[in-house]
Design a protein around this nucleic acid. Structure first.
Length: 269
DNA sequence: ATGGTAGCACGGCTA
């Protein structure tokens, strides 16, 4: 089964590019982020016409996630547990069944966290949007712990808005005081990983120069000034099924592209 | 210090 994640940055603007990629890459399942649409306004035919089932968790104007799958989508839940006050649409879960295994999928759009206010000592202060990011990551870790107890294949994938290591940025120094790279952000990500997750891409491609996002501004893509912030995390059961993984960087060079590109993995489910 | 680009939706926020 080929599974993928793609931050499309607006379903209405991205419908043609998304359709082209779905036809070309033909994933069995894809989680989408930044659909920037309510469930009602989502142009479902863009995805359903290609033979996918679709479950959305939308919000007006911002955020919003979805799961599309050629297999039936079962046991869907919407929203990240842990804060009933949190109205932002950033988390969706579902179960799909392959020939031999069942897979629990979490599709996520982790908060960006900028701007970060720095104290007199130039250390980040956990307030406002940055506090929301760190709180959200603690809630994600708690949910991951719960899901790991089932001892069945589990994958967390999406736009994590985290640059895990210096080698995941073309110019790490440019991100030194950014919420995507600050030490508390990377530490929280490592805490998650230490529950037992495998970064599917890193498992197959060690080394620098692999990115999933290039800013629209200042010709970042042409200069390959990118960062790797979209990730596919596998629990030990799913990691044992990993066959292949890749980044479809060429979609960034297409017509009216998203600023992110798809990442995918093949699991022997 | 600022501005560079894009999406949603039509003003200003988010990234």
């Amino acid at each position: 089964m080929k599974i993928a994640s793609f931050n499309i940055n607006g379903i209405k603007a991205r419908a043609p590019a998304l359709r082209r990629w779905l036809e070309e890459a033909a994933p069995d399942l894809v989680v989408l982020q930044e659909i920037k649409s309510t469930d009602d306004a989502f142009p479902r035919e863009v995805i359903e016409d290609l033979g996918y089932n679709l479950e959305t968790h939308g919000q007006k104007g911002f955020n919003g996630v979805a799961i599309a799958s050629k297999h039936p989508i079962e046991d869907v839940t919407r929203g990240l547990p842990g804060d009933p006050e949190d109205a932002q649409a950033r988390w969706i879960e579902a179960t799909v069944t392959g020939a031999q295994h069942t897979l629990r999928v979490c599709g996520l759009y982790l908060p960006n966290g900028n701007p970060v206010s720095l104290g007199r000592d130039r250390q980040p202060v956990a307030e406002g949007k940055y506090a929301y990011k760190l709180d959200w990551m603690a809630r994600m870790r708690a949910r991951a712990r719960e899901l790991l107890r089932s001892e069945t294949p589990l994958v967390l994938m999406g736009d994590f808005n985290i640059i895990p290591e210096a080698q995941d940025a073309a110019r790490p120094e440019a991100w030194a005081e950014d919420a995507l790279y600050l030490l508390p952000s990377r530490a929280a990500f490592r805490e998650m990983m230490h529950l037992g997750f495998t970064d599917a891409f890193r498992a197959r491609y060690p080394g620098p120069g692999h990115y999933t996002f290039w800013d629209y501004q200042a010709g970042a893509f042409e200069r390959n000034d990118g960062i790797r912030i979209d990730h596919l995390l596998l629990d030990p059961h799913a990691a044992d099924l990993l066959e292949d993984c890749g980044i479809d960087a060429d979609t960034r060079a297409g017509e009216k592209p998203s600023d992110h590109v798809p990442i995918w993995a093949r699991l022997s489910l």
